[in-house]
């Protein structure tokens, strides 16, 4: 346990010492808030709240994909990674610290969105809704964490960054995060339920006072989570076999 915290501490230090990485992590969702949500939906409490939920989901996806996709691919390229395996610790402190650090970065990523929503829009939540919403964001981040790990263990860093970017935007737009939650264009309405984004987003919306989630997006969220989990485990084992057997 103390080793897990030690690993997390130093991994976090490594991350925040590159400030541009932290800025990049928070930029898109915050910028989208400022450009799209504040001017167009800022005055209606429910619309602003749901749009804030969408941007937070976007932020959480982005952090999960980048932290794990790029982070793991980068780690694998560093000789420091095999060195750490010679230390007297199992693989869990390293793996766990990656997940914990991802969560910390996720929190850092949604914080500016939360601040913008609270100060510049009419968005409003009760403390219970806020907690529920954070829980829903956590669930929404799981498939993207697993996709990130899959990409990170499968590809070299340069390929991973491209793939992560290719995955992020279509998933966010296709899932309807940048549209009205209740009245999306026909194409998005047709595609969205089959993307992992939508199930997560509907959970977040429901948590903060929006409509109840529909069954299809939730089932697809579960399917994506299971499939991405299987792929992540496969890629992890494959990497272990190549580098450490």
């Amino acid at each position: 346990m103390s080793l897990l915290l030690t690993h997390t501490k130093y991994r976090f230090l490594e991350t925040i010492r590159v400030p541009i990485a932290v800025v990049g992590n928070t930029f898109f969702p915050s910028a989208s808030m400022l450009f799209f949500v504040v001017p167009f939906a800022g005055d209606d409490p429910l619309v602003a709240t749901l749009a804030t939920g969408s941007m937070m989901t976007f932020s959480v996806m982005s952090t999960a994909l980048f932290t794990h996709g790029l982070g793991v691919a980068d780690d694998r390229a560093q000789p420091w990674d095999p060195y750490m395996r010679t230390l007297p610790a199992g693989p869990w402190p390293r793996f766990g610290s990656n997940i914990l650090n991802g969560l910390i970065m996720t929190l850092l990523g949604i914080l500016p969105v939360l601040v913008i929503a609270a100060t510049l829009t009419e968005a409003t939540v009760t403390p219970a809704q806020l907690l529920l919403g954070l829980g829903a964001l956590l669930v929404a981040s799981i498939p993207f964490t697993l996709i990130g790990l899959f990409v990170g263990y499968l590809l070299p860093a340069k390929a991973a960054i491209a793939v992560v970017q290719l995955v992020l935007l279509p998933m966010a737009v296709g899932g309807g995060l940048l549209m009205s939650p209740t009245d999306p264009p026909a194409f998005i309405a047709a595609v969205a339920p089959f993307l992992p984004t939508r199930g997560g987003a509907e959970l977040v919306w429901a948590a903060v006072g929006g409509p109840a989630p529909r069954a299809l997006p939730l089932v697809m969220l579960a399917v994506w989570t299971v499939v991405a989990g299987a792929l992540a485990v496969w890629a992890y084992r494959r990497d272990e076999g190549r580098r450490f057997s």
């Binding site: 080793l3 030690t6 560093q78 000789p79 060195y83």
Partner: peptide, 26 residues
């Protein structure tokens, strides 16, 4: 046992003190 990492792989953003403490903690 003790093993030497390749010096090119030392985490460049950490301080000397931190990397020593990190390894020692194990």
């Amino acid at each position: 046992i003790g093993v030497t990492p390749q010096e090119t792989g030392l985490p460049s953003t950490l301080r000397v003190r931190e990397v020593v403490d990190f390894v020692t903690a194990h």
